[in-house]
Amino acid sequence: MSNIYFTEDHEWILVEGDIGTCGITEFAQEQLGDIVYVELPEAGREVVQNDEIAVVESVKAASELYAPVSGEVIESNDELTDDPAKVNVDAMGDGWFFKIRISAMDELENLMDKAAYDALVAGQS
């Protein structure tokens, strides 16, 4: 069983213990094009699953990120503020957005695994 999950809004969450690292998927960064700006949550913020939590902007589009699970934001990737292009270069790695301490692990069950997400993307492209 893999520890990475996906949402319908093209976000990913990598779960290690009770910590989830979140970002947007390769598909999402391709759809957006050159990322020019991100707005990140402050550490300490409590979120409920599906709360708006961050913003990502390209020249022509802006999208919200929604909390994939409930919990407390423990860290944001401040490097993206200076260099949002990292999201284009490595969406699933260096281009992560924030880390969250998951308060309800069972919410992960609402998310997709890689196979389900790949199927979703195949249907959209």
Binding site: Y37, E57, S58, V59, K60, A61, A62
Partner: peptide, 9 residues
């Protein structure tokens, strides 16, 4: 910075 504006947002 037109992502602030109505035609996108």
């Amino acid at each position: 910075l037109s992502t602030r504006e109505q035609h996108i947002r």
